[in-house]
Write a protein that binds this DNA or RNA. Structure first.
Lengths: 342, 342
DNA sequence: TTGTATGCGTTATCAG
DNA sequence: CTGATAACGCATACAA
């Protein structure tokens, strides 16, 4: 009964069968399938009819084996599931990626790498499942992606920490400049005691934004010691904010390295009775939907996340097409978006 | 220069090369790779040494072509990216799925289907990329997944609407009973005028929870006409809540069909000065992280989302293993979790 | 323009 | 226990 259902599954039609049905050779069918220009129109038509009728779909494994191409790329995220799903920033990047891929013949394989044991991911990647890889949320310790580059074209979202290959391809924003613009705004509106909740310090984005914070304050002759480290999660930022306020209760402004973290910070601020922006002005980073999710809309350093995803995919596709004139870096602009929090 | 980088990519080692290095035949290497018991220990060792040394990884395309198996399954989500990423419910399900898959040899392919044009997804699925499929967030119109079942084993998350195949495999909760327990609680605490923000009415989960709402109220002899339709997003629920309060300003309780939607509702309630739970008691559904994200923790009907994901993957794996004694349905329990909103 | 022949890297079926 | 050898389904150089 159950077995019956299983064995009822008909075998997929093959090139051979289509060829037989259309009365031509496999080669010709292959040509039609791959859109070769040198096939007589009438033959094309009859072959397509056969394809239609048999509901033929080429077998990717066979095609890949013969052509050494898979027509699919991987998005590697060395992060855990909850973090990945929790931050709307990732959603935007993925959207951009799929948008670009959708207008191509490539399909996307999402690999959230920390749930998968690391080596399993590497095996998957290296066993010829994909033609190239996109890597986002890259941490310092993640050298496992480094040797990926010896295997296939790789494009990073955010400058990779990896020093070995200086010639990495990546799409990024100038996080230092972005942070400076955010902090400068806090200074401009007259705040003198600015604190920050940083991103993870094992990620360039975390480090760079912290550096921007320090730079802006240094230029203004203001202290830059009210620093607590976050981890790009709301909960982590909430805890960090508590620590910060305990240590530096006198701050009148806060630069938070991501919108999602700012949501956590704002909750703590509200709980502690610090009015935003009156008592403490807050500037965040990303301009993701999270910036508008709370009761007070966030002033934030906007980065074009979706466009960055699009650019990453575009870069990789060009690399895969053999384009040897693609620039290694694509630094996109940030822009301060003024809302209610500062 | 750039070309140099590309051509520097060394070819992946093959079975053949490993065989040569180990001084045995391809067949023997294949046996070792696949853990065949009938190979002399000493040979196994020398082969493994060669594998190690050459850094060999089997080619999936070739393996798949020869064995008619891909060792990977797809998770199909007929939903758009933002919705998928926006709801922590999905994160939990995916986590459960990967958890089960991680302890197997299978890998996961995530297909968020509405970004991908539909037919592209189907082509991908049908071209032998995966051995089986998991489908979540299935809508009434999505009959395209129906004929998937003629191609490979499919397990649904949530009872599918598809009437054609009565023998679908699925994991679900009793949404009617769950909704009843939630609404009954509102009645039990003395509320007489209960409204609801429903899920999409083209999804069984949306319909069933609405039916539960009606049933509970009917049993209590209370009116069940304060109904507005939501779409499982916070924004959609916010709008629906506004409509509801305009139409039925007298409600003293609200049953919202998902936590994420409840977050949207709560924001509107706060904005309109309706205190929760004093003026309006709120019960939601899911018990996802969203239930704890707002200022007031949500009383909610808990469903074991992660476990459901795990169960889905487990079911599919057993199907793929040829187990013909697997039950078609796995209905998991819900449980009312009392917090601050009701 | 079309067909033939060969190879892609594995698995699987045979002998030995 | 091990080694030839034939598929697997498709692409492609080469021949016609």
């Amino acid at each position: 009964m159950t077995l019956g259902t299983r064995s009822a599954r008909p075998p997929q039609p093959t090139l051979e069968m289509v060829a037989a049905a259309a009365g031509v050779s496999r080669a010709t069918v292959s040509r039609v399938v791959n859109g070769s220009p040198k096939v007589r129109p009438e033959v094309v038509e009859s072959v397509q009819a056969a394809i239609e009728q048999l509901n033929y779909v080429p077998n990717r494994a066979a095609r890949s084996l013969a052509s050494h191409q898979t027509q699919s790329v991987a998005l590697v995220v060395p992060e855990d599931m909850t973090k990945f799903f929790g931050d709307p920033y990732f959603a935007a990047v993925v959207q951009g990626i799929t948008q670009r891929l959708d207008e191509s013949d490539y399909t996307l394989n999402l690999l959230v790498a920390s749930s998968d044991p690391r080596h399993k991911t590497m095996r998957y990647l290296r066993s010829g499942n994909v033609d190239g890889a996109l890597v986002i949320s890259h941490h310092t310790g993640d050298d496992f992606v480094a040797n990926l580059e010896s295997t296939m074209p790789v494009v990073f979202g955010g400058r990779p920490t990896n020093h070995s290959g200086a010639d990495n391809y990546f799409v990024d924003v100038d996080n230092v400049a972005g942070a400076i613009s955010g902090v400068q705004h806090l200074i401009d509106i007259g705040r003198h005691r600015v604190g920050t909740i940083t991103g993870p310090v094992d990620m360039p984005a975390g480090i760079d934004r912290l550096n921007g914070f320090r730079h802006a304050l240094g230029q203004a002759g203001l202290p830059a010691d009210a620093v607590e480290h976050g981890d790009f999660t709301a909960a982590g930022a909430a805890a960090a904010t508590r620590r910060l306020l305990e240590r530096s209760p006198d701050i009148d402004a806060l630069f938070v390295a991501s919108d999602l973290m700012a949501v956590g910070s704002m909750a703590v601020l509200a709980e502690l009775g610090r009015a935003v922006p009156r008592d403490i002005a807050v500037v965040a980073f990303d301009d993701s939907p999270a910036a508008l999710s709370g009761p007070i809309s966030l002033t934030t350093v906007s980065q074009p996340s979706k466009e960055m995803g699009f650019a990453m995919a575009d870069l990789l596709l060009r690399l895969l097409a053999g384009d040897d004139a693609v620039p290694h870096h694509n630094i996109m602009p940030t822009r301060l978006v003024l809302r209610d929090s500062a």
